[in-house]
Each structure stands twice: as C-alpha cells, then as structure tokens.
Design a protein around this nucleic acid. Structure first.
Lengths: 139, 139
DNA sequence: GCTTACGATATGCGTATGCCTACTATTGAT
DNA sequence: ATCAATAGTAGGCATACGCATATCGTAAGC
C-alpha cells in the first residue's frame, strides 16, 4: 500500500509554478505569450491543422485562441491560409521565422530548467524525463 | 547534452490539469474548495501559524485567503484563536473534524491518482514518487 | 434548392487571480 | 507619550479563464 505522501498535485503544482516563472522572462524577451509559444510548439511538431483541432490539442478555448493566432500571424510566426478544398478552414502552418523563434525559446527555456533538473542525481534525472515523456506521449 | 524533448512545463502542465480534474469531484463531495483543502493540508502538517505565514506557505495571496478561512471556520474545520501574547495575531489550528475531512479527502484523491500512477512500471512509480517528494521537500 | 452541420470569429458572463491600497487594532521602540 | 511597523481585514482594478451564445460563410446530404 501507499506510503504516507502528499497528493501528486500538491507536489507538482509548485514545481510547475517555478518552471513557469523561469519561462516567463524568456518568453517576454522573444515577445511571445505562453499561449503563443504553445501554438508554435504544436505547429512545429505537427505541421497543418484546423484551428479547432489546434485549440483542442493545446487545451485552449476555441474562441479564445484567435487573438493569439492574430498576434502570431502579425509577427510573421505562423500563416493562416484558406484551405482550397474547404474554404471554411484556415490551414495553419509555422513559418521559418516562427520555427527559429520556437527553437530559440525552447533552447533558452531548457537552459533555465537546468536549475531544477540539476538537483537530481543523473540516474534520477534520466528516469524522471523518461517518465514525463511517457505521460506526455500518452495523452 | 540533452536529447530533444518537450519543455518540462509542457509535459507537466497537462498532467497537473488531469490530476486537478480528478480532485475536483472529491473536493466537491466534501464541500471543500481547492484553497480550503490546501489550508487544511498545511495546518495538519504544521499545527499553528499566523495567517500571513500560512498564505505564503501555500502560495496564496494574504488578502484573498480570508474568505477561505472564514468558510473553513464556519464549517468547523479550523479554529482562529487570538494569540494571548500578541492580540493582533490569530493562531490557526485544524480541528479534529478538519483533520478527519482532510484525511478522508486525501485518501480519496490518492485513490483517484491511481489512474495515473497505475500506468507506470512499479520501479518507475517508486522513483517518480521519490523524486517528487524530493522536489516538494526542497521548497 | 433547402436544410442541416461545421469552421472561424466575436462577444458577454461569471468567476478567479495577482497586485495594490487603505483601514483598524495592536505592538514595540524611542 | 508618540510614532513607526505589523496582522488581519476589506475593497478596487486589470487581467485571464472557461463556458455559452450568436453570426457569417461554406459544405454536404437530401
């Protein structure tokens, strides 16, 4: 049976808070919002998609995502092209600039994350990352 | 060097979202808010404290925590007694009822968490929990 | 052709958040 | 005795969120 321990959320939430605090300055330096970065990440990993599908994929609200897309488009980081096959649909794609920004941001963010990961023993660090990727891939 | 991987927050946040979704019905069933549960947990683990210290401990706003304390007090889950030594201070303590509620909630929450933890191999599960507790204890 | 369904968009509502100010009672130092 | 600092409390303000609804153009089945 389980040993006495705090709830998972109680342990994870402060960690996430700390990680977000580490991310914010990086995002601000690149003029990208959290949602914007989330969109760039999703588009870089999976090229085209409808906006509704994108919203669902990143856990955002379908109607609230539009301002984010507007900003990204205006900054030249993504493109919204009407689908010739279904003119209701806007095909989303990341631009080369968007890709560069996304990767630069990710690199800096992961550098910040070292402050957290460095506290783990090498074997633990490896296991931890593997488990998280497993969770991430399975949902 | 680091293998290509999503950001920690990108992997952790969906997980936390899922865990919170599992918690909410449990909390609702016991008529306790998330902040309320957070307060009960803090007080059960460390008996007395001033409200300001409590707020800081659970990462809440000093002024926004008051409604939560009012509710908990009204429900008989905590007590606020003036400190005889410094009458500005209200000493906070969890009541026996509060303790029972907190522990019942935690038990049910951790039962829900099994849906997440059960996907891990036994060794991974053990390591994962150990790492999280390590993070949790270190901040 | 007409009706129904769907994608993108805009907007409103209720609520929660972080941050900040102000007020009262009380303390502690001068 | 006076004054600055502190704990708890209350409230305002700007922002963000999830949820719901409405509109408009388009698509597809009948």
């Amino acid at each position: 049976m389980a040993t006495e321990r705090p709830d998972l959320a109680a342990m994870l939430y402060p960690l996430v808070r700390e990680l977000i605090a580490l991310e914010l300055p990086v995002l601000a330096a690149h003029d990208v919002s959290m949602w914007g970065y989330s969109v760039l990440t999703a588009l870089d990993d999976t090229p085209v998609r409808t906006q509704a599908a994108l919203a669902e994929a990143i856990g955002a609200d379908k109607s609230r995502i539009i301002g984010t897309l507007d900003e990204l488009q205006k900054a030249g980081l993504i493109e919204r092209t009407p689908d010739p096959a279904d003119r209701r649909v806007r095909l989303l794609s990341i631009t080369p600039l968007g890709r560069r920004v996304r990767r630069a941001v990710r690199k800096e963010i992961q550098a910040q994350e070292e402050q957290v990961l460095a506290t783990l023993a090498p074997a633990d660090r490896k296991t931890f990352l593997r488990i998280l990727q497993q969770f991430h891939a399975s949902r």
